[in-house]
Design a protein around this nucleic acid. Structure first.
Length: 273
DNA sequence: GTCTCCCTGTTC
DNA sequence: GAACAGGGAGAC
């Protein structure tokens, strides 16, 4: 499931492949995933060049030379992969953008949750418009202030706050669990009961976890691959996520699996208090 | 603010 | 053969 490190890895892998490429055609195979309509993409994209690729949270945006954008959200299982036009069409392909040089960008999404939006810069999709700031480039003091302000008016679990994309963009289930493990904080603790000292620890842990994962080209626990179809290897370094009932790597205690904020949640009952 | 639904491959 | 995985939009 692509979260910030995976989407950033996809962005970096696609950037040299797509920059300057001229679009020849657009094939849409799952109409309802494409907004405002497949026809608008088929009319607007051919002839345009890709000038830049931007990531915000888990959204990836292609910028075109006429200023228009194509914004993807891969949700749980989406893959965005560069390949020759001649490559066989994979099952569950949502859309293919073909380029004049014989290559194409395929959006393959078995769960059919992913979305593609063609839009002007002034009219981003609703989720992107409401998105909180970027974890890795926003000053620490600002992130801490944002968390603590949000925490003050909610008594739900701290993990739910970390997953809230309007508070801060980019963390999903894997990195919320990993961040809280490294911080030594239990995911179900009420957000308004976390001390300033603990918020600081959570911040430092989040930065470490995200940077480590980007360094490892993301976590390929299940479907995730980069823009060239290559897996990441951060799954090797996961401390708690996906390790239900296995021993904690720090203390050996059996890890707990439970449900917090509506998500499957992993933690160490000894290391996290 | 909280709940439901969207989907299908994988796991139990 | 059922339960589960899960981000976010939209409904309550």
């Amino acid at each position: 499931m692509p979260e910030l490190p995976e989407v950033e890895t996809i962005r970096r892998s696609l950037l040299p492949l797509l920059t300057g490429k001229k679009i020849e055609a657009v094939e849409v195979y799952l109409e309802k995933a494409v907004k405002p309509s497949p026809g608008k993409l088929r009319d607007g994209l051919p002839g345009r060049e890709i000038v830049e690729i931007e990531r915000r949270g888990k959204y990836l945006t292609l910028q075109l030379d006429d200023g228009q954008r194509v914004t993807f959200h891969l949700r749980m299982a989406g893959r965005l992969v560069f390949m020759p036009v001649s490559a066989p069409l994979e099952k569950h392909t949502t859309l293919s953008i073909t380029f004049t040089d014989g290559n194409s960008l395929r959006f393959v999404d078995p769960r059919k949750f992913g979305t593609v939006v063609y839009h002007a810069p002034s009219e981003p999709p609703v989720g992107l418009r409401k998105l909180g700031p970027e974890p890795l480039t926003t000053p620490k003091a600002e992130v801490l202030a944002r968390w603590q302000t949000a925490a003050a008016r909610r008594k739900g679990p701290v993990k739910g706050l970390l997953l809230d994309q309007e508070v801060l963009a980019g963390l999903g289930n894997i990195y919320a669990d990993e961040t809280l493990f490294l911080a030594g904080v239990r995911p179900e603790r009420p957000a308004n009961a976390i001390s300033a000292r603990e918020w600081e620890k959570i911040y430092e842990s989040m930065i470490t976890v995200l940077n480590d994962s980007i360094g490892h080209r993301g976590t390929s626990q299940r479907d995730y691959v980069d823009g060239l179809g290559e897996k990441g290897y951060h799954q090797v370094y996961l401390q708690v996520y996906g390790r239900k009932r296995e021993p904690c790597r720090k203390c050996g205690t059996e890890l707990v699996y439970t449900r917090v904020a509506g998500r499957g949640t992993h933690y160490c009952p000894h290391c996290q208090q």
